[in-house]
Design a protein around this nucleic acid. Structure first.
Length: 408
RNA sequence: GGAGGGGUUCCCGAGUGGCCAAAGGGGGCAGACUGUAAAUCUGUUAUCUUCGAUUUCGAUGGUUCGAAUCCAUCUCCCUCCA
């Protein structure tokens, strides 16, 4: 019989574990309750969270119970890990809103319900804490000397670390203790950057409850250059279709560097390893097939089959024949607006393809804009109804940004 | 609280009265090459209707024909001492 631990290992998801053999056994024999924390610092999850979601899904499929902790309480403090600056603080209302958004997105990956998965906001207990009680109960168990040697504080010791942030580890550790007491949670999972925080929690439970609990971290999703994935110039790649359209989302994965495709397939899809094994042999142009599979699978997981199909069709139409079909970024324009012709720069601006006209001028002058595959040579070009075919026209910016203008 | 150092364009970082829309690097964008990849090379990177004009060097005032550069006040940050 297959064990999740093996699955996770095989797919390269696991970075570090506290008690390897023990955990392996446990995950095979028992139904465990585990938790992963999410910082509600934005109103949508992004690609950076995706891995955690995959792991939760894997675990739940194997019969374990996930608890998604919304760090409503901890977010009011701010995790210093890996940050160079102190993060801005959020109000409670913002946090609440964000948490609601997360739940919707998480529901696509794991099933919530009484005996299934839970989602809890740690503000529930953290905000009620009494300072002195907390110090006496939790604070005594932490050695400052130890904490200072933790990798996650090192960089901050140079730049400056405020006391509030220094407490983050204690709060997260307390979460684990609380969940252990109230939900019999025995596992904490998290990104590899959370290792120190996880150890803190395990230690705390051991000292206060005399119980052994476990921890496990996952590989961080980084590209071959070691940079975090899921970031573009325009910011994170979001799971919310309003923030990052399924088409853009699909394109993001369609364009991952060769060196990263296989890793992404392993980490971010449920495609069986046997199938991935074949792909590992591919090279050169063949890898484009793997990228298509990756883009399709990941888009499907996040946005559903229908959206994934649409994105794929749109991409194929555009990059294949350059046709004007499919679901792609579109701007609707009143027919009146082009009656007398509209300047190309104005059009680009309306379509949101350029932030300013100066930028547009540069683009056109460098030959970066074409309409229906005809290069625009001058910034004085006016677009009128004769440019449109079936009320539509396709603007291409650079090599792979397509935008449709639809007359209405 | 005391002493000192600093805030420059997306980021880092030069620039100490005119030649500064501001060096250099990074990043971004575009072009060439390609496979919707990477690497490389080239161009470009405040805004506005091209010339030209306008706004920018923490904030506000001032000195000057002329200020990112000098002066005053304010503000934020950092380091050392307590």
């Amino acid at each position: 019989m297959e064990c999740v631990f093996d699955t996770l290992t095989e797919r390269g998801l696991i970075a570090q574990v506290t008690h390897e053999e023990k955990i392996k056994q446990l995950l095979k024999d028992e139904k465990v309750t585990f938790y992963i924390g999410f910082d509600p610092t934005a109103d949508s999850l992004h690609v950076g969270h995706f891995l955690q979601m995959m792991v939760m899904a894997h675990m739940q499929r194997a019969g374990h119970r996930p608890i998604a902790i919304i760090g409503g309480g901890t977010a009011m403090v701010g995790d210093p890990t890996g940050k160079t600056d102190m993060r801005q603080m959020l109000t409670q209302a913002e946090i609440q809103h964000n948490a609601n958004c997360f739940k919707k997105q998480l529901s696509k990956f794991i099933e919530f319900g009484e005996d299934k998965a839970l989602m809890i906001d740690n503000a529930e207990w953290l905000l009620k804490l009494n300072y002195v009680d907390f110090l006496r109960e939790v604070g005594v168990h932490f050695s400052v000397n130890r904490m200072l040697t933790a990798e996650c504080f090192k960089s901050r010791l140079e730049k400056g670390l405020s006391f509030i942030e220094f407490n983050y580890m204690l709060m997260q550790s307390y979460d684990f203790l609380y969940l252990n007491r109230h939900f019999n949670c025995t596992f904490e999972l998290g990104g590899d950057d959370q290792w120190a925080n996880i150890l803190g929690g395990i230690e705390l439970v051991r000292r206060t409850e005399s119980k052994e609990v476990y921890g496990m971290t996952f590989t961080l999703l980084t590209n071959s250059e070691g940079k975090k994935m899921g970031k573009t110039e325009r910011g994170a790649v979001w799971l919310d279709p309003e923030k990052t359209s399924p088409y853009e989302f699909y394109q993001y994965w369609r364009n991952v560097p060769d060196a990263d495709v296989l890793q992404c397939l392993r980490l971010l899809t449920f495609l069986p390893m046997s199938q991935l094994g074949d792909m590992a042999q591919w090279e050169g142009q063949m890898l484009n097939q793997a990228k298509k599979a990756l883009a399709y699978e990941v888009t499907m997981l996040v946005h559903g089959v229908e959206q994934a199909e649409k994105a794929q069709h749109a991409a194929e139409a555009l990059f294949g024949q350059g046709g004007v079909s499919g679901d792609m970024p579109t701007t609707e324009l009143a027919t009146d607006a082009v009656a007398d012709g509209i300047n190309i720069l104005d059009l680009l601006l309306i379509a949101g393809l350029i932030p300013s006209k100066a930028e547009g001028r540069r683009l056109v002058q460098q030959g970066g804009i074409s309409i229906d595959n005809k290069k625009i040579e001058s910034i004085d070009v006016a677009i009128d109804s004769t440019w449109f075919v079936d009320e539509a026209l396709m603007i291409k910016k650079g090599k792979k940004v397509y935008h449709k203008i639809q007359l209405v």
